[in-house]
Design a binder for these strands. Sequence first.
DNA 1: CGGGCATATAACCACTACGGAATACTCGTC
DNA 2: GACGAGTATTCCGTAGTGGTTATATGCCCG
Lengths: 102, 102
Amino acid sequence: MPTFEVLAEPSRRKILDLLRDGERSVNELVVDLRASQPSVSKHLRVLREAGMVNVRVDAQKRCYSLNPTPLAEVDAWLEPYRKFWNTRLDALERHLDARSQQ
Amino acid sequence: MPTFEVLAEPSRRKILDLLRDGERSVNELVVDLRASQPSVSKHLRVLREAGMVNVRVDAQKRCYSLNPTPLAEVDAWLEPYRKFWNTRLDALERHLDARSQQ
DNA sequence: CGGGCATATAACCACTACGGAATACTCGTC
DNA sequence: GACGAGTATTCCGTAGTGGTTATATGCCCG
């Protein structure tokens, strides 16, 4: 599934957010997300196949950790837009400066 | 529709990309996207309702222009991840530095 | 005011994604 | 080797999305 589609799911974004604090087992994620275990497992599969998380097997547990690399694609897409809201902010600043001259 | 879902559609991202170069009429977008007119109109509606584009009426034509503001939400979500691939790059740099010492 | 241009909307269809319940798998333990 | 914990997978039902065709709307012009 393409990166942007993966991120369209709020639960999946939240999983990534949680994994920023370090690796978590499936059950820990289930608790934090207040979702069913199959649901979380399915989302984790999507994230795995998109290369956004890594798995470490620890007996029965699977510990998932963050792989932020694919997010660079989003960052790259966003890049050309950044100058737009920068120039917007610049315009706003100029506007405010002009007002402060009064 | 939430920002991330709006962006999940490749055609919609492409529309935004095209509008970076300035406003376009629906028909111009239809040509550039090689898509049907109703399809483009629907995508434009989604983008409109998400506040990502503005419309200017010019006789029969509707000229759409970019409103990048909602993209700031994506940028904000992405922000905490940026340091991750920075530290990854740092790690890569250290690795390369270490190799160059040999 | 009739016709053609530009766009929006409606109605329909195919597809897929998500959630829940049930089940299968796999490992460590007794 | 039976059992339970932890997780993955399967099998539904459902809802929503995107595409196409057909139609409606609004505007300019002759």
